[in-house]
Amino acid sequence: MTYVVTDACVKCKYTDCVDVCPVDCFREGPNFLVIDPDECIDCTLCVAECPVEAIYAEDDVPADMQEYIALNAELSRSWTPIVEKKDPLPDHETWAGVTGKLDQIER
């Protein structure tokens, strides 16, 4: 089982999770992070660090966010590893409570 970044991260891109990852499995896109399922060791450390609760165990991803499982795998192949915490996106507070942001992901 791996962990999956979901909807709440889109247009926020908090990177608190990156600091605690022991295997550097996070990948960074313009306005979203993903987890490389081949690198994730299921340590669970990132889950508690996410301020918007965007990270789920693959088996626990809500039914309305199942597409994020394949999306994390797909985008992790082309996005750049991120290994240090950065500031969230400038308008993160506006987007933190918004749901249904799949169409907002910039590739």
Rank of each mutant, 00 (worst) to 15 (best):
T2M: 13
T2P: 07
V4G: 00
T6H: 10
D7Y: 01
D7L: 06
Y14D: 02
Y14P: 02
T15S: 13
C17F: 00
V18I: 15
P22H: 03
V23Q: 12
C25G: 06
F26D: 09
F26L: 12
F26N: 03
R27W: 04
P30G: 08
N31K: 08
F32L: 15
V34C: 14
I35R: 05
E39C: 05
E39Y: 09
I41F: 06
D42S: 15
V47G: 04
P51Q: 03
V52A: 11
V52E: 11
E53D: 10
A54S: 12
Y56A: 00
A57W: 14
A57P: 07
E58N: 04
D59V: 11
D59M: 06
D60F: 01
D64V: 10
D64A: 12
D64Q: 15
M65I: 04
Q66E: 15
E67V: 11
I69F: 09
I69P: 10
I69W: 06
A70H: 05
L71Y: 09
R77V: 01
R77C: 10
W79A: 06
T80K: 14
I82G: 00
V83W: 02
V83Y: 03
V83E: 12
E84I: 00
E84K: 14
D87I: 01
L89T: 05
L89N: 02
L89D: 01
L89A: 10
D91R: 13
H92V: 07
E93G: 06
T94E: 15
A96K: 13
V98R: 12
L102Q: 06
Q104T: 10
Q104M: 14
I105T: 09
I105H: 04
I105Y: 06
I105W: 05
R107M: 07
